[in-house]
């Protein structure tokens, strides 16, 4: 199949970017979107041009490195990561727009590569549990109710790709932060930091310049791992609970 690509090219975060049009020919429908970009880059290199910069790592949908907005949708038309998006979802002769994640908190480094350090800052603020050093504890020593384990696993699926921020009209990171908070707050191992975790992570999220949530639901629609929208309500519940606890603690 032959495609026309309009790709965002930007030399660095300081320089202005623009959409540049390319043609790719003889693309196999079995290729992934990234393999199609590899084909384009090979041609660009052979022609002596600068290849398109994009993030990628595992190429099996679990690392969260690859991320680009394809035709206005984070990770493109299928609910998966860009590396797992196949060219059979496009038609011969299509024009495909490829842009980086757009958010104040995710500055463009080059072309389609954005700096997602803001997510790391949110994780640093509370995305951990405290474990004493020494020998590993017996795995069955702490019982985890089935429902809590399922809830934790559902949220642990978040790969931090940033599609939620990219899809949100407000550039909000509520779905990402809620996935991380819910994952640890529901488990017995996460209890000692239950209140500080949610308060600190939300504060860090606000510091990084993410927008506020207006409950549009775009994040959950775009999430390749299916983190559901009610997760944000669960985080809000944790947040309100932590505020109440903090208040009574400061009084006592």
């Amino acid at each position: 199949m032959n495609l026309t690509l309009r790709i965002w090219r930007q030399q660095s975060s300081e320089e202005e970017g623009a959409m540049v049009t390319y043609r790719v020919e003889d693309i196999s429908p079995d290729m992934s979107f990234l393999e199609m970009l590899d084909v384009l880059n090979e041609e660009l290199i052979l022609a002596g041009d600068e290849p398109v910069a994009f993030d990628h790592d595992c190429r099996e949908g679990i690392c969260g490195a690859c991320g680009m907005v394809i035709n206005g949708q984070a990770h493109g038309p299928e609910r998966t990561t860009t590396c797992q998006l196949h060219m059979r979802h496009f038609k011969d002769g299509d024009t495909v727009d490829v842009e980086p994640w757009r958010a104040a908190a995710f500055p463009v480094v080059k072309d389609l590569v954005v700096d997602r350090t803001a997510f790391d800052r949110v994780i640093q603020a509370g995305g951990y549990i405290s474990v004493p050093t020494g020998s590993a504890p017996e795995a069955h020593a702490t019982a985890v109710p089935k429902e809590a384990a399922d809830f934790a696993f559902e949220h642990a699926e978040c790969i931090g790709c940033g599609a939620c921020v990219a899809a949100c009209p407000n550039g909000s990171a509520m779905l990402f932060t809620s996935a991380k908070v819910n994952h640890l707050n529901v488990l017995p191992q996460g209890q000692p930091e239950r209140e500080t975790r949610v308060l600190d992570m939300v504060a860090a999220m606000d510091d990084q310049g993410f927008g506020g949530c207006t409950n549009t639901g775009e994040c959950a629609t775009a999430c390749p791992k299916g983190i559901p929208l009610p997760s944000i309500a669960a985080m809000n519940r944790e947040y309100l609970r932590a505020l109440r606890k903090e208040k009574s603690r400061s009084k006592g």
């Binding site: 965002w8 959409m19 757009r102 104040a104 407000n170 550039g171 506020g212 639901g217």
Partner: peptide, 25 residues
């Protein structure tokens, strides 16, 4: 305040425009 914060969080718009969320939203 919320709108101001949200507009600041997305300074560059997408080139490919797409209708987002429901009419009510």
């Amino acid at each position: 305040q919320l709108s101001k914060r949200d507009i600041r969080a997305r300074p560059a718009k997408y080139e490919h425009k797409r209708q987002r969320a429901s009419y009510a939203t």
